[in-house]
Design a protein around this nucleic acid. Structure first.
Length: 415
RNA sequence: GGAGAGUUGGCUGAGUGGUCGAAAGCGCCUCCCUGCUAAGGAGGUAACUGGGUAACUGGUUCGAGGGUUCGAAUCCCUCACUCUCCGCCA
């Protein structure tokens, strides 16, 4: 959510910056809403002040035994006028709130101009593509069983069998251990979240269709970003402790409502997948440096696993709703002969902090923190990348050195 | 699932119809004293928000939402959450 004061004062600048990401900020609507608000609010608050004064007068008269009938008539008149105006104001405020909740974050100045993913900029390529294999993960191993999953739950799920559940656990432990080594505190968190939490991180109200909702009015989390960030909702954090770094491994649940027919084969796009999330709560002064730090923490995993990848900076038109700057990390998928997203690292500036009310105090006053997060990494996609890049051509997956202690082997057999 | 107790500022905690945005303590900030340290003294310190160039000044908020009342932290109703006991359970 943007700062309404900032919006009043710098409307044209903000409108221009938002147009970079293809968002049209409706000036007439905002100005007419805000103008009406100002007039109504002044009259409501004046009436409230009147009522407060009259009521205390009433109390004094009453306690000294004087006649209050005449005053009562004035009070009743004031109150009924107040009721009417206040109702109007509440409706108007709700409209303004909805208007604000709908506005995406402002792209950082450093973000390159562009319309869609074709204008994203590759800023780094790491590792060398050595795989000669062109089989995809379902062809390499029958241990990823989508038929079995379909019987249990339907499409876009999978069952892992054989050595693969263990390989997945190894990846999870490896990633968490690495995050902890880099100063992140590990949390185990709820896999469901309430409405306030999801508004806080920006999934609601706009993207409800992407979420699974339970009958208890809870949502399955689409990412651990939601619980991890909401740990701090409505809290003052201590300035000296910034940046606060937290991590968690969770399953993630996404309805994938908008992607029918897309990536239907294999593990790429599932309703449920495992992910390690990295979150930093930072001082606004150094949030960009923290983003670089978090990005390097995520890249380190792929470096250690010796998987080839590239880092892409998203252009203004491809930025997510809440983000001011985003790097995607894309890992090489031999079967698709291209790089596929395995992590998205974003600086949300004060956008989420404002929605979730996360602040710190210092002698200049109270300030919203900046929030940064990214996957470190998406485990399912990492599993595929490992299988496809490290397939030895005859039922074996070569296990990179740092992962070997978790599996007690350098070569994992698959069926 | 049943019974009871609770939810107040950054934190602990008092407050049962107007003088309460709220005692006290802790924390924090400024200053003083002590040559350092420890301790002590004085003052300040809730959040959000409107109007105003400003000085300043108004409003809202005591878990959430309704209600009673001229007036609600305080009384009533509904809901959420926390704690205790019972039941059930991995």
């Amino acid at each position: 959510m943007l700062d309404i004061k900032n919006l009043r004062e710098n409307f044209n600048d903000i409108k221009k910056m938002l147009s970079r990401r293809g968002y049209n900020l409706d000036q007439d609507r905002f100005e007419s809403l805000d103008e009406k608000r100002k007039i109504l609010q002044i009259s409501v608050e004046n009436l409230q002040a009147d009522r407060n004064k009259l009521s205390s007068e009433y109390g004094k008269l009453k306690s000294s035994g004087e006649d209050v009938d005449e005053l009562k008539i004035t009070i009743d008149k004031t109150n009924s006028e107040l009721d009417e105006k206040d109702n109007e104001l509440q409706i108007l405020l709700k409209e303004i709130q909805n208007f604000l909740l709908d506005i995406p974050n402002i792209p950082d100045q450093s973000v390159p101009d562009g319309k869609d993913e074709n204008d994203n900029v590759v800023i780094k390529k790491c590792g060398s593509i050595t795989a000669t294999n062109t089989l995809d993960h379902l062809e390499i191993t029958k241990d990823i069983d989508t038929d079995m999953a379909a019987k249990i739950a339907g499409s876009r799920f999978s069952v892992l069998k054989g050595e693969l559940p263990k390989l997945q656990r190894a990846l999870i432990s490896f990633m968490i251990d690495n995050a902890v080594k880099n100063g992140y505190e590990e949390y185990y968190v709820p896999f469901m979240a309430n409405t306030d939490s999801l508004i806080g991180t920006g999934q609601l109200p706009k993207f409800e269709d992407d979420l699974f909702k339970t009958t208890e009015n809870l949502y399955l989390i689409p990412t651990a970003e939601v619980p991890l960030t909401n740990i701090f909702r409505d809290e003052f954090v201590s300035e000296v402790e910034l940046p606060i770094k937290v991590t968690s491994h969770t399953p993630c649940f996404r309805s994938e409502a908008g992607s029918y027919g897309k990536d239907t084969r294999g593990l790429i796009r599932q309703h449920q997948f495992e992910k390690i999330e990295l979150v930093q709560i930072t001082n606004p002064n150094d949030s960009m440096a923290c983003l670089e730090n978090l990005l390097s923490n995520a890249c380190e995993i792929l470096d250690l696993l010796e998987l080839p990848y590239q880092v892409v900076e998203l252009c203004s038109g491809d930025l997510g709703f809440s983000s001011t700057k985003t790097y995607d990390i894309e890992v090489w998928m031999p079967s698709q002969n291209k790089y596929r997203e395995i992590s998205s690292c974003s600086n949300f500036s004060d956008f989420q902090a404002r929605r979730s009310n996360i602040k710190f105090k210092n002698k200049d006053g109270n300030h919203f923190v900046h929030t940064i997060n990214g996957s470190g990494l998406a485990v399912g996609r990492c599993l595929i990348a490992l299988i496809e890049n490290n397939f030895n051509g005859s039922g074996g997956i070569n296990i990179p050195k740092p992962l070997q202690p978790y599996l007690d082997t350098a070569l994992l057999s698959v069926n």
